[in-house]
Amino acid sequence: MSLFPPDIEQTATKIIADFTAKGLMVVTAESCTGGLIAAALTEIAGSSAVVDRGLVTYTNEAKADILGVSVDTLKNFGAVSRETALEMAAGALKASQAQVSVSVTGIAGPGGGSATKPVGLVHLAASNRQGKVLHREKRYGDIGRSDVRLATLRTAFEMLQEIAEA
């Protein structure tokens, strides 16, 4: 029995198989998902060939210290921003042996939202060592903390599959 819904387990299984076949390793840099992306991947047998490490950087200090996100970026754009997600993805690659990274930062709720950054807003980024970079801004809405986190996980998996094709 998996900890995750069947569609997530199926996608994780496909990612592990595809990345293994391509010799790719992944690093995750997670804020609002708190390690769910790494957990879903490592739920799959054989994931040790694919998952280099998972970095949970929940605070601004962790984003700066571990991932090298610029203090100016955090001050000027905030933790939940395109700029921060992109710097998180780049920093994760630098902090790992992986060829591919995915990062997420958002507001899962139920509190913490504002008029400009509502609950359910998540910025995701993925990058590879060849310089390909993806970004997505998702507005899942105030659908509940768990559902925002699972929706983010699904989007992160889509982005990992897309960056692996690059």
Rank of each mutant, 00 (worst) to 15 (best):
G78D: 07
A98W: 02
L36Q: 13
K75M: 15
I15V: 11
V104R: 01
T13D: 02
E30S: 09
A92V: 08
T73F: 01
I8H: 03
T84H: 08
G35M: 02
S127H: 03
V50N: 01
R154H: 03
Y140T: 02
K75D: 12
P6L: 11
L36P: 05
K22N: 08
S96D: 06
R149G: 11
R53V: 15
I66F: 10
V122K: 00
L36Y: 09
T116D: 04
T155R: 15
S103V: 13
V71L: 13
G46K: 14
L153E: 07
A45E: 10
S81M: 09
F19V: 12
L55E: 08
A166L: 13
G23D: 06
A90T: 07
S81H: 13
A166N: 14
P110M: 09
V27D: 00
Q161F: 05
T73A: 13
D65Y: 06
V119E: 00
Q99E: 13
T11N: 06
N128Q: 11
A156G: 06
T20R: 12
V27T: 11
P118N: 10
Y58M: 12
L55K: 05
A40D: 00
V104T: 11
A45M: 15
I107Q: 01
G34Y: 02
R53H: 08
I37S: 00
P6C: 10
V26D: 03
F4W: 07
I44Q: 04
F157M: 14
T13R: 15
A62L: 14
A29H: 04
V27E: 02
Q97S: 11
A45Q: 14
L3Q: 07
F4S: 00
G141T: 06
I16T: 01
E87D: 07
E158F: 13
S81R: 06
L36D: 04
E165A: 14
A108E: 01
K75C: 15
S2V: 09
L93C: 01
K63H: 14
T73K: 15
G141D: 08
T42S: 07
T20M: 06
S114G: 05
D52H: 12
D147G: 09
C32N: 08
G35L: 03
L67C: 14
A126T: 04
G106Y: 08
I37W: 05
L55H: 01
F157K: 13
G35Y: 02
A45K: 14
Q97I: 12
A64N: 15
A115K: 08
S101P: 02
T42D: 02
M1D: 08
T11L: 10
I15E: 00
D72M: 15
S103P: 10
A98N: 01
G78W: 12
I143E: 07
L160N: 09
V26W: 01
D52C: 15
